[in-house]
Design a protein around this nucleic acid. Structure first.
Lengths: 184, 184, 184, 184
DNA sequence: CATGAATGAGAATTCATTCAT
DNA sequence: TATGAATGAATTCTCATTCAT
């Protein structure tokens, strides 16, 4: 494992635990066991480390969401996408923290954000298609996406805060509520 | 105005502008014009200042949500509650930051969190009543509340990130989507 | 119990545990639960608190040492004095710390030290008498006293560091060694 | 001379003059002329500086005690060891302060203390041999050592408090008293 | 007697960054 | 690539002390 990866991994762990702002470069250095200068060799500063992590995670995110989604069927596709996202966040807590705290924050420069958008194109298309097929009411698409994400995010937070009490049954309720909200 | 209030007020302003983590104690001290030791006389550290602010804001929050809600009518009450919350967060960015970043974090001791819960009792009752009247499907109430909050939060974030593009029309769409999701 | 006594008692406990220099006035204030200003009402500063404690303890010390010592018999008197001192220190750890760390340090003004000397007069007389009776060799008296104290102190330290392993048997060995050293 | 050594040396001087507790890190920093961060680069905090000094001094101590001691002769060896120790402490006031105030205090972690013990092995052997040769009575060895040290320490304190009045004659009395105490 | 707010100097510690190796 | 010594500004925190009530 390269020194660079070690730094990224350590940053990942610290940021997950404490938040981005609370994680200092010197802490990353101490925790990773990598020499001071080595970190500066690979990264200009903390922001650059965060940016690299962001890019890594954004890639992951995009590919996972659309896994196993039967292209032709909106109704079947919806719960699969929802749950793909949900379980991805559950299993990748850092990814979740990033999505929540960083992805939209000004710590990430606009160009990276723009680059990451391409991974959501499929989701974009999904909602447009659902409207075209007159399954979903023609709401503003970006708004639908945000509310869709928002419902997953809500449940992930609920799960993380309280995981023993969030059951498959609750997940299914959430999917249903989310689905019904969009219907014609 | 007591020195303590000055410190709290200054913290409020700084945190609103910069976020919690980006606000250092020394900045609060400089900005408030209060002596170093005075701050430490009243608060053990930054977290304690934040905690006190939390309590203040939690009180606000609870009272605002239920403003102007005609008790007898679920259908009329829903959009009013939704918008009360939305505009409260829009007009009190710090309150929003708190709700999002701090309210659920471990920076706030459990007893404070518990105390704050009482302010949501009315919302609790609202959902129970809606189910009893067979307007809403009998989903798990706590889950409905979270999804309700979640939809507001999503829109607030959208607004804050992008306020010129979020119009009354979008707000109304969001309220409608949220409402439909819960229906029988 | 007066506020003053509470402060003295708290100081006693803190100093015993941490040493004099490591104990700050602010710590005494916090620990005692007495108000800031109250402490300053009774004492000018930390040194004055220490000085009062010193006086209290010095009085104790002097009276205890000569307890139960049959005046007429040097040989019987010696082990009693030795053990009086030993057990006094064992049972009054703070007194011991004071004797060791403070009694001779410059934290205590000379006039207090002089006042305390009177309590050792009896011990002084004891050694002079023992020499006069040709039981002890005519060493310098002040030196004998210091070595006598030193042997007790050594054993107290040993006991405090390691109390389970210091037995009556060891105490008796120490008394014997100390005694033999002075003999003609 | 490395920055680290400079810090250690400065600490040594300050501590000798003022005592350990009275010496602040910031004073060490100012006095040594080394940058703030440099000190923290090499040492975690003041205790760690003290600990390193301890190790250095413990090494010194062990080697000095046994200097010029004719191996084969207990009776000749004893006063030499006693005086080696005495003059070492007189000439190295810091070493003495360390031995008295720090060596046994809880500021020094147990592993360092244990490591330091090996330097006293020779003294250990000396007392065992003296008992085997039936010169010393078979007292508990560790106790004899402590009383031996104690008698030296007592005289050093006397000397430091009062050096003009402690003469060669008094030293010799102390050695004799110490010696006689152990005899069969 | 008792209280606790207020102060500011200064001590302890963290931090981002540079540089020579 | 990798290292770790060195730096000093900035930050966090402790402390002794004063004062009005």
């Amino acid at each position: 494992m390269s020194k660079k990866s070690i730094v990224l991994q350590t940053t990942l762990e610290l940021v997950t635990a404490q938040g981005v702002a609370a994680t200092s470069l010197s802490q990353i250095i101490k925790e990773s066991g990598v020499a001071n200068g080595t970190v500066y060799h690979h990264f200009k500063n903390k922001d650059e480390i965060i940016a690299e992590l962001y890019l890594m995670l954004a890639q992951d995110f995009g590919t996972v969401i659309m896994k196993n989604t039967p292209q032709a069927n909106i109704k079947k596709q919806f719960p699969i996408m929802w749950k793909n996202m949900f379980y991805y966040f559950i299993n990748n807590p850092l990814a979740f923290v990033f999505y929540e705290q960083i992805a939209k924050s000004c710590d990430i420069p606009q160009d990276l954000k723009d680059e990451a958008k391409k991974y959501i194109l499929d989701i974009d298309n999904f909602f447009r298609e659902a409207i075209k097929e007159k399954i979903f009411k023609p709401y503003t698409v970006s708004l639908m996406e945000e509310l869709f994400f928002g419902s997953v995010v809500t449940m992930v937070k609920l799960y993380n805060a309280n995981n023993s009490k969030v059951l498959e049954r609750h997940i299914n309720q959430a999917v249903e509520i989310s689905w019904k909200g969009f219907l014609k």
